[in-house]
Amino acid sequence: MNIPKCGCKENRPPTAGRSACGCSVNIQKMTTDTFKVPAVPINRPLCTKGTELKEQPISTKNELKKDDKKKTWSLSDFDLGRPLGKGKFGNVYLAREKESHYVVALKVLFKSQILDSEIEHQVRREVEIQCRLRHPNILRMYGYFHDEKRIYLILEYAKHGALYKLLKERGRFDEKTAAIYIRDLTKALVYCHTKKVIHRDIKPENLLIGHNWELKIADFGWSVHSPSSRRMTLCGTLDYLSPEMIEGKPHSYAVDIWSLGVLCYELLVGLPPFDAKDSHQTYRKIRYVIIKYPEYISEKAKDLMGKLLVINPEERLPLVNVLQHQWIVENAPEGVQPPEFNPEQK
């Protein structure tokens, strides 16, 4: 088995038993003074009438004037609230834009840590890609700015946090709930692929839940704009890697289809399908698609996963066909919204 060795210093630590990523990237190390961020249009968030920094529905009826979009952002434009999350390279805070009172999530990254870990290209790519995506199931990036030491990403605020946290609280989801999430994720991936974007790191930790409990793809750090649709870099989270990626073969949009199948299993079972005691066993299970389905999984759900988790990328079920699959049609017909969860309900 040809498994490229991971040389990425960003190599993510395992999350609650989840294996880390693997990525071999070599880029020239730069000083903080030479750190460059991509030049993409910066749009101000929409105006709202809120006056307090609260976790509540945000009105987005009023558009800002065109002249406002020319503004250069700075930290003084925001009131910072409580921390929403902590990562290796910085933190995410609840924030409110002072002029419009629009509530956002402000992701603060430290340039020195990014440069030391040699992932400047990933941050630049994340900003370039996410700023241009517009889909109800993709987390918006409204803009960004930076100072001498930090980069600030202005993101849509997803009130209910990560899907991973919700999944762990509940253990697993019923088939209707899982089907709704898979339906909406599929729609977002179809949109990404039409924009020539491969996400490459679909997993519950990178999927957020918005105010209306809708699913939103976040974290485009491993994403790539790939017009040629053929890539070689080994990246992502081990449990979600496709067979072609672990064998170092060129990969395409089909890696996201594979990850969709892995996610479907994890939502229904509570664990990824190739979970094992060590990475070598996980690699083996992935390479030969060794899956054990619990008895409570329906035949239609198994049929869908079986058509997604296929060794040959060309034989995986196309995303548009996923939306037409009987399991999706019966459990998540168009118009059915995700369920609302109370913390007390398990």
Rank of each mutant, 00 (worst) to 15 (best):
N2T: 10
I3D: 04
C6T: 13
C8A: 01
A16D: 15
G17V: 00
G17C: 03
S19T: 02
C21K: 00
V25H: 06
Q28W: 14
M30V: 13
M30N: 03
M30W: 12
D33P: 00
D33V: 01
I42S: 05
I42D: 00
I42T: 09
N43R: 10
K49N: 15
G50V: 10
E55N: 12
I58S: 00
T60N: 12
K61M: 12
K66C: 05
S74F: 05
D79C: 09
R82C: 08
R82N: 12
L84M: 08
K86Q: 14
K86D: 01
N91Y: 02
Y93V: 14
L94Y: 12
A95I: 05
R96C: 08
K98C: 09
E99D: 09
E99H: 01
Y102W: 00
Q113M: 13
I119D: 06
R124G: 03
V127Y: 02
C131A: 02
R134S: 15
H135G: 07
N137Y: 03
I138V: 14
L139W: 04
Y152E: 08
H160N: 09
G161R: 03
G161Q: 07
L166M: 10
E169W: 00
R172Q: 09
I180F: 02
T186S: 03
T186D: 01
Y191E: 11
Y191K: 09
Y191W: 13
T194E: 14
T194N: 14
H199D: 07
H199L: 01
K203P: 03
G210L: 02
H211I: 07
W213S: 14
L215W: 06
A218G: 11
F220A: 07
G221N: 00
W222R: 04
S228W: 07
R230G: 02
R231W: 04
T233S: 08
L234M: 13
C235S: 07
T237W: 03
T237R: 06
Y240H: 12
E244W: 08
I246R: 12
G248W: 11
K249M: 04
I257Y: 09
S259F: 13
L260P: 00
C264G: 11
C264D: 02
Y265H: 12
Y265G: 01
E266Y: 07
L268V: 07
V269G: 05
V269A: 05
G270Y: 05
L271T: 13
P273A: 01
P273S: 05
F274W: 03
F274Y: 14
A276Q: 07
H280W: 07
Y288T: 15
Y296K: 15
Y296D: 14
K300R: 14
K307V: 04
V310W: 12
V310S: 10
I311Q: 09
I311F: 04
L319M: 08
V322E: 04
E330K: 11
N342D: 15
P343T: 04
K346R: 15
